[in-house]
Write a protein that binds this DNA or RNA. Structure first.
Lengths: 238, 238
DNA sequence: TGTCCATCATACGTCAGACCTTTAGCCTGA
DNA sequence: TCAGGCTAAAGGTCTGACGTATGATGGACA
């Protein structure tokens, strides 16, 4: 009577997940159709489907309908992973387990070295896109969504570091800060200072001057820090 | 005929997820029973269950059986989030999108500042557990699992930084490196050097000497770096 | 001969309803 | 008082049927 504490759908999901992690199933592979899987595992189709939902939610498989449809092992992708991490961090940030100060700390800790790397590694396309961003800000686009535009700048910088893990970790933090503070209309002095800082950072990046870029980013983030804490208390968080 | 590209189970999961993120549902809340949900959303029970599997896999809800069972909004928890992030990174690391060098880079980038913070913030319990770890290594425990023990040390250090995001991000990297290289038996020279380094770092942490701790960690990680690259090619990765 | 469209086959999406299993709490009897 | 069994509640699983999206096929027509 070993009480099977684990529901079948969970056991099956674990089994398939293990196959994927061990690369017995590789990205692009198609799983057997649901009725086949049901037969192989000796369970009903609904149980299989619950297992597949579990895997799909973890971005391990993807399901499509129609004649050539089926369930496929997903080719891993930084963006979707970043998106689910965002959800997780957002939920954490809603609890007492994670506060704004900690997010800012992690962000600075990641972003300053990332800026240094970006100065060294940014491709011409990447420096171009950063220059474009600066230019569009100068032309006064992003009206009323300054903070969102600011985060876009930081995202571009981190991506230019060309280490997928850095983007994977920074972007969810940006996203959470953005959903939390995105509605705030900063003062015009704040906006001008931020844009000026960005221009300095961008110039250093484009000139591949790592020290100057990192120093400018550090100074910029230190300027921002008290504002975030102010935003935070203004929103009535503890 | 507006083709409803989105399956019902997905739409329902999104709807409940939005409720959780907006804190219309808070941790500990119990969702209506499945048959109720089915009624409210106007779908069958199996559709509801698929939606719930989706949410459960994202650590947003949890279901329990029995008389007092049901589906509950989960209280967020760094560890489970770290676990799913591990899976994601492990899959990424199996593709060409992420290589060992990048993982090591991110790890160093996180861990050195984390060590500095740990020196400042570690609680007495945390420095004790680090001291215990060192002591148990000296007594020759962890026979044949030296690398695993090494990662445990680094985990303790990062946790002592007392910023949940740093643990959340570092531990999956440790985990992936561990599952990839955990079977390797390092040379005795390597082991002794690592243990010596750990002792130096631990001493600095216990003495709350941030500069010395960070410098020792930097030196340690730089010592390790070529070994990982060597392990990596030995395992026949590209 | 080549193109277009209707049809078909396939596999996922959804539903209804039944039955099993787990679990907490209550009820009963020693 | 306490042990053991009963019961109700809720999730877990199965069956089988039908709906629906979508690529492929093949014939009609220009």
């Amino acid at each position: 009577m070993t009480t099977d504490r684990l529901p079948a759908y969970r056991a099956i999901a674990d089994s398939i997940r293990a196959d994927i992690l061990a690369r017995r199933l590789v990205p692009g592979d198609r799983l057997p159709v649901e009725t086949d899987l049901a037969g192989r595992f000796g369970v009903g189709r609904s149980t299989i489907r619950e297992a597949l939902r579990d895997l799909a939610s973890q971005n391990l498989v993807e399901t499509t309908r129609g004649a050539t449809g089926g369930t496929f092992v997903v080719v891993p992708n930084t963006e979707t992973l970043a998106r689910s991490l965002s959800v997780g961090i957002e939920v954490l940030a809603g609890s007492t387990d994670l506060n704004v100060a900690e997010m800012l700390e992690a962000r600075e800790l990641l972003e300053i070295p990332a800026t240094r790397l970006a100065a060294v590694r940014a491709t011409p396309e990447q420096t171009d896109s950063i220059a474009d961003h600066i230019e569009s800000r100068r032309r006064g686009e992003a009206e009323g969504r300054e903070l969102v535009a600011n985060w876009n700048f930081h995202t571009l910088v981190v991506r230019a570091a060309n280490n997928p893990l850095l983007g994977l970790m920074s972007e969810p933090i940006f996203h959470v800060l953005q959903t939390r503070f995105g509605r705030i209309r900063p003062s015009s002095g704040f906006r001008q200072r931020v844009e000026a800082d960005h221009r300095v950072i961008a110039a250093a990046l484009i000139g591949h001057d790592a020290d100057r870029a990192a120093a400018a980013m550090l100074e910029h983030l230190e300027y921002l820090r008290p504002f975030y804490k102010e935003f935070d208390t203004r929103l009535g968080r503890t």
